[in-house]
Design a protein around this nucleic acid. Structure first.
Lengths: 137, 137
DNA sequence: TATTTATAGATAATATTTTTCTACAAAGAA
DNA sequence: TTCTTTGTAGAAAAATATTATCTATAAATA
């Protein structure tokens, strides 16, 4: 939290209660919420906060490298405070999005370079399937 | 083209000039155009066609399994008439989107099942880097 | 030829995200 | 402490992407 304050100060940004709450919420969850979901989750504590503030804040957090943006194929973006590059998996039945932890696919970048003339820097991997809960039903 | 007519007939869909043109255009290009780009490309030949028709048509084509939808992380969707599951690579400098051909990553699905309790069915892989042209400049 | 049916295009609606503007509050200067 | 600067929250509007509704029409069928 203190390094967060320091980082904001370095960039001449103010660590307002709203920004702090949004970041803390993203850090606390693995649900990869959309802007709307963040807004709804914080509404009890910040009833006056506007959705525009959520959008502006996540954009700021992304620029600071504190949050990454996901695009699992919906019509909106989702956000993840785990900025380590890791694949995600989407349940095509209930829509939940989970991290695939401990799976390292960094070697794919150089593998891909064998098939293209691109200089490959990064990647985003989305897997789709049925989550344990939905398999039961 | 004939099997296209047959397929449409089977589904009680009409293969109108607009639909045919949109599909043919998607088949002819590897540029992975968005709805807007399709609309602009066909405007010279179909000046009266509306953007809504493009959206409705690509949706129809997707349902028929003739086109797939991409989401490279922009705020819009792109479309690809190559429905074989294949990874894509995005140039982060000029924005072009290329196929990664001949690279088969189907084995990743079962690999991912070792890390989650999901039943994995499919995936979408997006790589990001610098294309040959942009490397030169 | 008459009738049914699906669709194009116009328009409006909806959803998501961004921008503009203004008042305010925190930080720094006097 | 007081004044001043500066960045930000929130409201509202705008911009963008996408979908839905409605009607006239053209193709397919009877």
């Amino acid at each position: 939290m203190d390094n967060l304050a320091t980082l904001f100060k370095e960039k001449n940004l103010k660590l307002t209660p709203q920004r702090y709450a949004i970041y803390k919420f993203l850090k606390s969850t693995k649900s990869h919420p959309s802007a709307e979901m963040i807004y709804e989750a914080l509404r009890p504590d910040f009833p006056t906060m506007s959705l525009a503030t959520v959008y502006k804040t996540v954009k700021t957090l992304i620029e600071l490298g504190l949050v990454q943006e996901l695009n699992v194929g919906e019509d909106n973006f989702r956000f993840d405070a785990n900025v380590a590059n890791h694949p995600h998996i989407v349940c095509t039945k209930c829509g939940r999005v989970d991290d695939i932890e401990d799976a390292v696919f960094e070697h794919l970048n150089s593998e891909v370079e064998n098939y293209t003339n691109y200089k490959v820097n990064t990647h985003k991997l989305y897997f789709y399937g049925i989550c344990p809960k939905c398999q039961g039903s």
